[in-house]
Design a binder for these strands. Sequence first.
DNA 1: GAAAGATATGAAGAATCATTCAGATTAGGA
DNA 2: TCCTAATCTGAATGATTCTTCATATCTTTC
Lengths: 213, 213
Amino acid sequence: MTRPAPALLKPRKTPQQTRSAATIGAIHEATIQVLLAEGAGRLTTTRVAERAGVSVGTMYQYYPHKQALLYAIVDRHLQTIMDAMMAAAERLTGSDLAVVAEGLATAWLDAKTADMVASRAIYAIASDFDLTEVMARGMKLMTNVIATLLAAAPDARFARRDAVAFMLAAMLGGSVRVVMESSPTDEDFACLRQELPRACHAYLVAANGVADR
Amino acid sequence: MTRPAPALLKPRKTPQQTRSAATIGAIHEATIQVLLAEGAGRLTTTRVAERAGVSVGTMYQYYPHKQALLYAIVDRHLQTIMDAMMAAAERLTGSDLAVVAEGLATAWLDAKTADMVASRAIYAIASDFDLTEVMARGMKLMTNVIATLLAAAPDARFARRDAVAFMLAAMLGGSVRVVMESSPTDEDFACLRQELPRACHAYLVAANGVADR
DNA sequence: GAAAGATATGAAGAATCATTCAGATTAGGA
DNA sequence: TCCTAATCTGAATGATTCTTCATATCTTTC
């Protein structure tokens, strides 16, 4: 939609001294802060640099353009979340559906709330930067992870396992996102934390067939 | 039900001749087209005007600024969706949980796919324009509608009806959104259409049973 | 401690964009 | 037909933004 440019999105140079590593960290941090404090529309290179306590030029030392910076941040976030889910999946492999459902929901909530600040900020980037592709990738990945998990559950006998995995991925990702995006109260969160596992569980059991008394 | 429109976001003048009504329609249409074709980052007043076949000045005759235009479009979309859901709710009042669950899911999917072009475009605006408030309002509205429906279901005896309504709203809104945002195939849609009603049904039944065991 | 390389600076250039307004064009009634 | 109000025009304005590059400062290495 917007701009593909995969090669151009990579960082310009890799840090070699500790100094520059700290700089990059500060820039990342500042980007998220600006995003949350001022909104994506006011996310400018100057503002980020200012907040990070560095010069604009410094940022261009590491990223060829603004998009590359945004891409790096989104990518890192996605990676973090995915790592957490992979770990959860490994831990849950071979468990019963009930355990899998609750485990997945809890792991997802944990991962998202742990990185919530970044999460909320990132949901707002969609403008200068096309998130569609990244989101689609994440969605597909999650679906696969879940499908594998379902295949390994001893009490699973789904007619259409992939469809169920797809729906579960949409359910997890979507509900948490929607809630996060709408300035949720603590109560909203508590509610989600209680109900989401139940919903996942109920759906999995129902989809698994009536033979489950 | 969309009253709290900030004063500054309201249209500047109301069309009085058929000519101008057509112009406004063209501008709305063009905005969505530009949004889909070029992305939110390249959504400029000039581009919209050009695509609509009018002058930039014309747009400023009806909207005091770009944000007002965006707001109008988002608001109109939300209104459309909400009207559809209200109608569905009325139709479903007094039905059993099974009927309510499936009816809600189907109505939501119908409404979203009917206006899918606008839907997808709007999901991309979040930048120049803070959708948080609008989304939060929509979420709250949906939750209330669902809660009322649940209260009217003869076989319902939820311990925490509001929590269930909240979760169901998040489930509906979120899953459809996530799927729509990730360049879905027809197959993905078919899948959602089949599984979402099931998921809603399963959750409602499960949440209803837990209450008095 | 001095050269070499890495990192940081920030004013200046070039591009883009939202918004205005004075004047042209068009529609509808008398 | 003619007049008035509604509608439209689009170059000009001013503000904001991304990006560059010549220069300065710091680190490491020998």
